[in-house]
Design a binder for these strands. Structure first.
Length: 432
RNA sequence: GGUGGGGUUCCCGAGUGGUCAAAGGGAUCAGACUGUAAAUCUGACGGUUCGCCUUCGAAGGUUCAAAUCCUUCCCCCACCA
């Protein structure tokens, strides 16, 4: 692929928010392989889909022949990025952050190629070069290059400084300096000349560019990616049941797939551009076809497939689709014993019936399993015949007859009960 | 430090002794319509095994009865110093 195409590719996808020295940057990328980095701070034991955009951007750079560095913020994670955050953050212990760094390293590594010759990816940890820096040299060698006057002008910390009742600690204020130092250090170590990040990182990125120029006398570049906005104004990546994580232990492949399949029509073509590697022509063709066709658009299905495959691989996708098939298209009769066992493994919410299930009303039983937040929701659903156990609709009168409903002879293969609440919630109960 | 205004259920916000589990809106959940959409309409919305149990910043008090009155304390906001 021609070097020129990278920015064009990112451009039509709508993935360029801002960049520094546009013309110079273009020329720079066209010169040949460049080293590009993006940082990921450990704020939890897994990344969530919000990190997918920069992660995939690194992959795109690699596709076009550049060398990606995924930087895991072992040290910056200890400090906390104040950018556009309304409140001071709670510090996490070194041990916890250390653990998170490990998880993130493995996670990030799935997305980029470490074995493709010259532009193989690198994973780095900024703790490696910050843990042994002593305060005095840091203040003299690095701190001297920063002007407080400039730092407090940055939009990202302004609200914390201006706003009454909120402040910013010296610790968080220093975050920008640490991240800037990373860029300078990566520049020195790996000749890294490009940093990318979310649009909230603009302040930190330009800080790094300035520092690298001052410390290393090198011109480096920065680019930010747009924040993912949903058409209805709600926050991307969060559902009522929580954050969508990349770790299948935290968000099953099935739940992950379902998240994408439920994408609003107004967002789905944009998301295809952001989150898949489909070409412009392909995406336009999908959009056109959906416009012509009646009924359900095909885009959500394609998006869900592509992204699930990207994050969870071919097997994860198959697992997710297996459950989706069974829950939304198939009939229970089609499922064999092995299939039911498999569903639980594939990520269908499942649990064992408690020993005293017969004494409990359905309301508490289903609420405790996590199907509903409170018993009231189950009751409401029962009142509308929206609860099915093994395909049989239950009503309010059945609330107190758990013993009968989950009796051995009603079970599939002597132990399974597939409970459906409403259209979208399924749970597999097993009985010993 | 002074003066004034506030803290109400997930969020915003009404409520100034019983008719208050507390108006209205948002969010959420379920139903209808659909496409596992959107919009719209309907219902639910502190918990409950429907007997009750627990809420209105906190703790005490007055009263048959308190979100509402009194006392102390904590927190927030505005203006002044």
């Amino acid at each position: 692929m021609a070097e020129q195409d990278l920015l064009q590719d990112l451009g039509w996808r709508g993935m360029i928010q801002q960049m520094t020295a546009e013309e110079d940057f273009k020329v720079h990328l066209a010169k040949g392989m460049q080293v590009v980095y993006c940082g990921f701070d450990p704020t939890a034991d897994s990344l969530h889909i919000g990190s997918l955009v920069p992660l995939l951007a690194l992959k795109r750079f690699q596709q076009y022949g550049h060398k990606p560095i995924a930087l895991v913020g072992g040290s910056t994670g200890l400090i906390g990025d104040p950018s556009f955050k309304a409140n001071e953050r709670q510090l996490n212990s070194e041990q916890v952050v250390g653990q998170w760094v490990k998880s993130l390293k493995t996670q990030v590594s799935q997305f980029i190629d470490f074995d493709c010759g010259e532009n193989s990816a690198i994973v780095a940890n900024n703790l490696d070069w910050t843990k042994n820096v002593d305060v005095l040299s840091f203040l003299r060698d690095v701190g001297k290059h920063f002007s407080i006057n400039q730092m407090i002008q940055k939009e990202s910390v302004k609200q914390r400084i201006d706003r009454d009742g909120e402040g910013i600690s010296f610790t968080e204020f220093t975050y920008m300096i640490l991240q800037s130092y990373d860029f300078a250090e990566l520049n020195k170590r790996f000749n890294c000349t490009v940093q990318i990040g979310g649009s909230d990182q603009w302040g930190n990125i330009t800080g790094g560019i300035d520092l690298t120029r001052r410390m290393n006398r090198q011109q480096v570049f920065g680019m930010t990616l747009p924040l993912v906005i949903k058409s209805d104004g709600t926050k991307f990546g969060k559902t009522e049941s929580g954050t969508i994580w990349l770790d299948p232990k935290k968000t099953s492949q099935y739940a992950f797939y379902q998240f994408w399949i439920n994408t609003a029509d107004a967002d789905v073509y944009k998301f295809l551009r952001y989150f898949t590697f489909l070409s412009e022509q392909e995406i336009v063709a999908i959009e056109e076809a959906d416009k012509q066709a009646q009924g359900r658009p095909s885009a959500q299905g394609i998006l869900a497939k592509e992204v699930t495959k990207l994050v969870h691989g071919e097997e994860g996708l198959e697992a997710a689709m297996r459950i989706t098939q069974a829950m939304f298209q198939g009939t229970l009769a089609d499922l064999g014993e092995g299939d039911l066992e498999q569903l639980a493994q594939d990520g269908l919410p499942a649990s064992e019936l408690p020993a005293d299930f017969a004494e409990k009303p359905l309301t508490s039983l289903l609420a405790e399993s996590g199907m509903a937040k409170v018993g009231r929701e189950v009751k409401d659903a029962l009142g509308r015949n929206a609860v099915w156990v093994n395909g049989e609709a239950k009503s309010s009168e059945d609330n107190m007859s758990s013993g009968e409903i989950f009796s051995r002879d009603k079970a599939l293969y002597d132990k399974f009960f597939l409970v459906k609440l409403g259209k979208k919630k399924n749970h597999l109960f097993t009985r010993r």
